[in-house]
Write a protein that binds this DNA or RNA. Structure first.
Lengths: 233, 233
DNA sequence: AAGTGGTCTAGACCACTTG
DNA sequence: AAGTGGTCTAGACCACTTG
């Protein structure tokens, strides 16, 4: 699959920001200059810039220019925290049980989530994270093997998938979906729920510079878990 | 100020969805047909469609077509949005029913949430917000009467409590707690749930410069509502 | 083969900001 | 006046889905 031109340009811009070539508030070249540099039409350069503006990476002002956005823009509510760090920071015991670590064939849904083709092979891990010997999170994760070829060789009792993935493929973007759901019977069993209870599910797609790295579903018993956030205006 | 063409086309599409001309999953005219109908280039029609896809109003599939998205709602975690604006921005019908509007005596929990004394009088409103004639949010709100003495005189069919409070006591801070819970029997009835289902509950304390303004509990059926968020690093 | 959306071009004119 | 982003055109070729 050939990467679209506008995606390549986005990637180059992100790279320059990540490596510090362009710091916060740096003024970007104009759209005409970007078009010339990347040998494309202005409309294509503009699309790359527009999407990075939508993502909060850049900011535009008519008649003035385009700038690298500040880093402390929004992310206060849902920072991606490592589950083991979070549990440990509460002064509680953390442990993990590996339920599965294998390959799977991507169905339509998984293929769409990982931006790959239906029928391609993906890596899959299923882990149960414990706080003080009670299950807190059931993590079902699909990983793009092109991005992370060594995934199946990892020892997730030493570091969580999130920790490992952050190391080998630094995050550039993440998309969350937060829902309430009733667990299936097998999930009730895995999470050791005494009675049926509502669960909080977070679905998360994460990107590194090269594309979608992973798609994870995190299920938490409603009685043991909540999300908190503080906003200031 | 003259409205841009693509914005006009967006407005027309939303109108047709709001008036029910195009129901859920209705297939839209192709981009070429839209361009002809609105007498513009395909790129301009496409821009209108793209932005409505980004907003979750439409869904596209290459080779197949563009469709009106389902009711399953998306809401942003990162910003406090007005529920009525959010529903309207999806091109859906909004309405509200007032269940209660009265004074209450603060018990221990409410007093703590509003930073007032136990036994003091507070204002209380209970509203049900509808999206397309289905309940989407049950809003139970306690208000500090010192901050907002006119609260009980408001007509919440005209503007939501959030809208009114933002107007009279501009927000400076907000704290959220997001949980999954099972609804009580009366909540099942109020939310018109056919079967028991998990609900997403957001508890929110809001501050203006003078102190705590309000404490609200927002309950949403899990099948009709989720939160979404996008982070960039 | 025909129709759909996905990407891209090489222009154009406009609104806005600054020198 | 010159440079910036904002909107728009009238095409083109592509990838994907369906008959």
């Amino acid at each position: 699959m050939i990467r679209a031109k506008f995606a390549t340009i986005k990637q180059h811009i992100i790279e320059r920001i990540e490596t510090g070539v362009w710091g916060e508030q740096t003024k970007l070249p104009s759209e005409n200059q970007l078009a010339e540099e990347f040998d494309c039409s202005r409309m294509t350069a503009r699309r790359a810039v527009t999407e990075l503006c939508d993502a909060g990476v850049l900011e535009r002002s008519q008649g003035i220019g385009t700038f690298v956005a500040g880093l402390n823009s929004q992310s206060s509510v849902l920072t991606i925290r490592n589950i083991s760090d979070e549990i440990k920071s509460r002064g509680h015991g953390y442990s993990v049980m590996q339920l599965e670590l294998t390959t799977k064939v991507a169905d339509r849904e998984i293929a769409a989530a990982l931006s790959i083709g239906v029928g391609e092979t993906v890596f899959y891990s299923e882990l149960l994270h414990y706080e003080q010997d009670e299950p807190l999170q059931l993590e079902c994760r699909y990983v793009n093997p092109k991005m992370v070829p060594e995934y199946l060789q990892q020892d997730f009792s030493q570091r969580t998938p999130h920790e490992y993935l952050s190391y080998v493929a630094p995050l550039t973007q993440a998309h969350h979906k937060i829902q309430a759901m009733l667990p299936s019977l097998s999930q009730v069993h895995q999470l050791e729920l005494r009675t049926i209870e509502a669960c909080l599910m977070i679905s998360r797609r994460t990107w590194s510079r090269q594309g979608v790295v992973s798609f994870a579903t995190l299920i938490h018993p409603g009685s043991r878990f909540h999300l908190g956030g503080h906003l200031t205006f």
